[in-house]
Amino acid sequence: MTIEIKTATLEPVRNTFAHIERRFGDKPATRYQEATYDVQSEVNFHYRPLWQPELELTDTRRTAIKMADWYAFRDPRQFYYGAYVQARAKMQEVAENNYAFFEKRGLAERMPEEAKQKVIRCLLPLRHVEHAANLNNMYGSAYGNGTAITQALLFDGMDRLGIAQYVSRIGLLLDGNTGDALSEARSYWMSDPLWQGVRRYLEKTLVTEDWFEVFIAQDVVLDSLIYNLIYEQFDAKLAQQDGQDLGMLTEFMQVWFKDASRWVDAVLKTAAAESDENRLQLEQWISHWRGQAEEALSLVAHEAVEEGALQVAREALDKRLSKAGLFK
């Protein structure tokens, strides 16, 4: 009897915040929903930014993409901060064990010199690519609209810093912590014709203004091609040349790419489905950047894998685009 009274009087007055209720109905909400929807300020900004006085602090005019509701970009992984760091902590624990094992067993010494050289020339320069990806995702997080997409861009940006650090650690494992492999890779990045196309491409993304276009150029086009080329095809090729132990050090990147692609594909699909105008804009950007990226990567693909490798990567990208409802 007393228990009954207690439960009756402790009935909640409401199930969730009013803005969550307006979107999802009067029922208990998930942590993702409460942490994400309508959290960002929308109106009545006090001052125009000194650094961009023609726009408000948060302003939808920073991209050509138009959305009736910017919170349509639901992250299929439902990452809010807590879910995000816990997912990454699990991945880093596996990576940590792999890196420790690789070091402890002296696997670097087992790797043929030729394979090592390939890694230094074809894989280590990616730490700079990841660094640009960090900046490009931060860009969208800073100037985008709606927590749903801006938080996911922030997570992606930080992931890319993490990956740049893992790639750098591969170098340190190969050169016994002297840093020589990293400086050799840096010189390839700065002056080897192999990488100049990619460097040019990334420098261009870093001066591109529209944040959604930057997302297309980086997360959709370039990442699709590079992750396929290097972390799939190059990895497989190296395994044939007795460099299979590298796979322990790139597992993080492979798992990460699968995870991030789920989100990138959802963003693309949502933006394209919103309107024909968006779809055409996306197709125009993709065509432009894909052409640039193919040109930029042709030498890398050939050197790291073989003739025809870029075509394989391109097919993987096109398949994703088509699933997102583009170029139909």
Binding site: A164, S168, V207
Partner: peptide, 18 residues
């Protein structure tokens, strides 16, 4: 090595624009 060494001097664009 893991952070400060990642950036580079631009050759193809004006870094001030970035």
């Amino acid at each position: 090595l893991l952070t400060r060494d990642l950036d580079w001097e631009f050759s193809y664009e004006d870094r001030n624009k970035a």
